[in-house]
């Protein structure tokens, strides 16, 4: 890391109780505390959140898009995992 620059952090915000934290963007901060405070000022100026997660960008390990075929396509053929795969006789509800 350059001395002249703060590390990059990915910011996740929970917009209200009951919802998951959602990625909103990134920012720079020298430490985790500052990352959360900066996120408060940058990403919740209009009451967009009630909880903030900050993760240093270098700690995010991501899947490789060139492997998307082998990672995600096999599940496309497993249609039996979805309820619509099954026939339910008329007159049956709540199933």
């Amino acid at each position: 890391m350059s001395k002249k620059e703060w590390p990059l952090w990915e910011i996740f915000i929970r917009s209200k109780a009951g919802l998951s934290h959602k990625h909103v963007g990134s920012l720079r901060a020298a430490d985790a505390e500052m990352a959360v405070e900066n996120a408060r000022d940058v990403y919740t100026r209009r009451s967009e959140g009630i909880s903030i997660w900050a993760v240093e960008s270098k700690d995010v390990y991501a899947s490789d898009p060139t492997e998307a075929d082998s990672l995600f396509e096999p599940s496309d053929s497993k249609v039996y995992r979805h309820p619509t795969f099954y026939d339910v006789p008329d007159g049956i509800s709540h199933m």
């Binding site: 350059s2 620059e5 963007g25 990134s26 720079r28 940058v42 100026r45």
Partner: peptide
């Protein structure tokens, strides 16, 4: 004040997208 501050925020959102392309903000 709030408007000019928003502009700083917008600059930041945009720099943050530039960084996803491998460019360094500074």
């Amino acid at each position: 004040l709030a408007k000019v501050q928003d502009e700083a925020g917008h600059g930041l959102y945009l720099y943050s997208s530039v960084e996803t392309l491998g460019a360094n903000r500074e």
